[in-house]
Simulated assay, not measured.
Amino acid sequence: MTPRTTRHLTSVFLVREGSVLLLYRRGSRAIADSWVGIGGHVEANELGNPTAAALRELHEEVAVISDHVDNFNLRYVALRDTGTELRTTYYFTADLRPEAPVPTECTEGDLRWFDLAVAPPELEMPPTAEVAFAHWWAVGRCDEALRFILIDDGGHVTGPV
């Protein structure tokens, strides 16, 4: 077995008035340019608290602070084996409060609100984001369950379970 490094990431699907905010991230160290939730790397001092990392990333990337959101919940934990790296991504959802400022720009790429009332668009997404987002859109929005996703080094997907 090849020794693997690890990488820990967060991603938040931010919901407001029947739409979800996604970021077309450009120039990432970890992924090709693609659509993702708002998030990024978990810092060493946050390894035991991915919620703090997700809230920090929301603030850094789109100026949303914890007082701006309700129903902030961890919804999916994904583990992806790239063959050289084990990537753990913590996927959260949150509702942007009606009185909170609406994010319109991000230095990491382009923001776009997607209407939750229509079929989900075909989007280029990293592997675990694609699985988590599709499941959340179709099923996960209707409950508060925590689910797990595993993608092995051959690309085989297990989950959400």
Rank of each mutant, 00 (worst) to 15 (best):
S34K: 09
G40H: 00
R112I: 15
Y91L: 02
V131L: 01
E124C: 06
A100V: 03
E99L: 13
E43L: 15
S34V: 08
F72A: 04
P50F: 01
A145H: 12
L116T: 15
A32Y: 10
V118W: 09
T88R: 03
L86K: 04
N45F: 12
T107I: 11
V64H: 00
T84L: 06
R26N: 13
P126D: 04
A44C: 15
M125A: 08
T93L: 08
P103R: 01
P127E: 03
R147A: 02
T107C: 15
L58H: 01
E124D: 08
D143N: 05
D115E: 10
E99K: 05
T84P: 01
D70H: 06
R29Q: 05
D95G: 06
L55M: 08
A134N: 15
I38D: 01
A52C: 07
A54G: 08
V36W: 03
H68D: 11
R56V: 11
P127T: 07
R75V: 10
E57F: 09
W113S: 10
G37M: 03
L96F: 04
A54I: 02
A117F: 13
N45Y: 12
T88C: 03
A44F: 14
R97T: 11
Y91D: 01
F148W: 09
A129K: 01
R75F: 10
I149T: 03
A100I: 09
P50N: 12
T89C: 02
I38M: 12
P126Y: 05
V36E: 05
E99D: 14
L23I: 05
T51P: 02
A30Q: 09
A30W: 09
Y90A: 01
Y91A: 02
P103G: 02
S66C: 05
L79T: 07
T88K: 04
A53C: 06
D70G: 04
F92Q: 00
A78P: 00
W136H: 02
F114Q: 04
T104L: 07
I149W: 01
M125F: 08
H41D: 09
P121E: 11
